[in-house]
Computed example of a mutant assay.
Amino acid sequence: MIQAGRIHEYLKKLTPTARGNLLTELERLEACGEEMPGCEEILAALRAEFRTDESTQPRAGNASRYFFAPLEPLLIDGAPEHANPGRILRGSLAPTWEWISRDLLPAMARDYVKEINELIAADNQRGALRVASAFQTKIIKSIENTLGSPDGAEQTRIKLATYTASHAAYGDLAKMLCVLRARDALAKFNEALPAMIKKFDDARVLKVTALLDGLAKDHPDAVPFALALVASRLRTSWQLIRLAT
């Protein structure tokens, strides 16, 4: 068993970002049921640093939380092997943010972080949302250009692999791109749904189908995410099959 003193000494040599990424990876492996002998003390030390609430994930910075806000209703904790086409792994956020901040648009990301933190400190919620939306639009265009070429896509895979061992990160990046493109339409769709669909009868099926058809006209790629939002309102997810009948 590694002594606690040596663990803390090792962790201090890592940057805060590296420690956060390490915690994300260890918790991902833990969620997958992997055996990790001797990691209990490492997890305890990292959780003591990053946990300020009962969350099972490290708290992201204000800037990244605002940036990823449109994804929040679609995030799940779990193993990549159990991926859902309409869901995004929460563990993919940290490596994606690292890639954006260090590789994709580092200078622009620094400016965004500075500006939005100033707005948050001034309690200017509307301004912070506006800045986050503008940055999301810039990131969308940059990711589209980057993934648009085989070389760019391959380099992105390589870079993401330096921030996480999860094989789901690249696929989740593509999902994030889709959700961010349709963020306003998905938000409108989500708001139109009841908090809980207690009875998925014919009348409710017709209403949801109409909402899905409206979304699909302009954002067909976003339909799996809309279905995930519907499923989260149902008593049992198998009821989704009624939308296909």
Rank of each mutant, 00 (worst) to 15 (best):
L147Q: 05
A182H: 06
S92N: 03
Y10P: 01
Y112T: 04
L89H: 09
V179C: 03
T164N: 03
L160C: 01
Q3P: 00
L243S: 08
P73S: 07
L22A: 06
L173Y: 03
L75A: 05
C178L: 13
E41N: 08
E81V: 05
E118P: 03
A192M: 11
F68K: 02
L43V: 11
L104P: 05
S149V: 04
A185S: 14
N21S: 13
R235E: 14
L212F: 12
P106T: 03
L160R: 00
S64L: 12
H219L: 04
D201W: 05
K13M: 12
K12N: 14
L29E: 07
R242L: 09
R130F: 09
K199T: 13
A60S: 09
N190K: 10
L147H: 04
S64R: 11
G152L: 06
R130Y: 09
D172C: 08
R90K: 10
L23I: 01
E35D: 10
V113W: 07
Q136R: 15
F189E: 03
D77Y: 09
A169D: 06
R183D: 08
A187G: 09
K159H: 09
A134W: 02
A45R: 08
I140A: 02
A44Y: 08
V205Y: 01
H8R: 13
T164I: 01
D103H: 10
A45T: 07
T146W: 01
A216M: 09
F200L: 07
H219R: 06
P95F: 01
Y112A: 02
Q57R: 13
E30Y: 11
R51D: 14
L119E: 11
E118R: 15
I197L: 06
P224D: 05
L160G: 00
I241H: 12
L229F: 04
T162N: 11
L211W: 06
R47N: 11
L129F: 10
R242G: 06
R126E: 15
P85E: 08
G20E: 14
R19Q: 13
I197K: 02
G33R: 01
F67V: 02
L147S: 01
H219C: 05
D213Q: 15
E9T: 14
A222E: 07
H167P: 00
L215Q: 02
A244C: 09
V223D: 09
A210F: 11
P73G: 08
L229Y: 04
P194G: 04
D123H: 14
I2C: 00
E81L: 10
L227C: 05
L23A: 03
L180N: 08
D103R: 13
A231K: 06
K138S: 10
R90P: 00
G171S: 03
A48P: 00
L129I: 07
N124S: 14
E98N: 12
C39Y: 14
L186E: 04
L211V: 03
A187W: 06
N21F: 00
G86Q: 01
D123M: 13
L234C: 06
D103A: 05
A231E: 11
N84D: 15
A153V: 08
G86A: 03
L89T: 00
A174E: 15
F135T: 07
T245M: 07
D213K: 15
T96N: 01
D201C: 06
D184M: 11
S149A: 10
G91C: 06
L29A: 06
T162P: 00
A128H: 08
K217P: 02
N124H: 13
E144Q: 11
W238A: 12
I143S: 01
A244I: 03
